[in-house]
Design a protein around this nucleic acid. Sequence first.
DNA 1: ATGCCGACAATCTGTCGA
Length: 259
Amino acid sequence: MKITSWNVNSIRIRAPHVAEFLAAEQPDLLLLQEIKCEPHQFPNLEFESLGYKSVVVGQKSYNGVAVLHRAPVEILHRTLPGLAEAPNHARYLEVVLQNVTVGNLYLPNGNSGGDEGYGYKLEFLAALRTHAQNLLAADADFILAGDYNVAPTDADFAPRTLGADDALIRAPTRAAFNALIWTGLTDAIRALHPHEILYTFWDYQAGAWERNAGLRIDHHLLSPRLAERLRAVTIHKSERAKPQPSDHVPVSLEIDGET
DNA sequence: ATGCCGACAATCTGTCGA
């Protein structure tokens, strides 16, 4: 099973890139973040011809997540369980494919909106941790993947890309991310590439791509049995060099068995 | 200090968010 996550920064702008990616890579699931549109605006036609259907959790202008799938999926959640507030933020979608529960998430950046904006980011991470604990208690096989807007360690961002108080690296951010991981989850990229400098995002500004001034902020967290079935991780870096790219690149997992 | 991008409301530009 192949599962890819990609923050596309507007699906309407990026539809040709996504279609090309689907044709070339044929993932079983493509988890999209920042689609920036309402469900009725989602460009389904361009993907249906490639054999993919969509589940869309969208809103006007901002945020928004979706899952593209070939085989039917069961929809479990359209908001993050336990996140009471969720004030008009389309940031979570959970489906099941082949007995694997897949949570697709777009975590708040946390640098805007002052204390409230940052607090919402921490609340999201806390709710995600509780949800992970519940899934573990239910003995589920699951993946929580997407744009976490968290650089977990100092090896996960290039020099001079982030200020010391940036919401992507502040101590409470990392503590909340670690608390999630330490429920017993595995960071897929780090499981297979523990020491390499790897990034999944390069800002549009200041020549970040040309200088390789990137961040590793897109993650796949795996439950224990799924971690044992992890065979490969691919960061599709070449997407960033294409014309009119997203600032994030796709990240794919290959999972053994149950296919 | 910072060279971008996309959506939107309202135009040939500004604001917001990331």
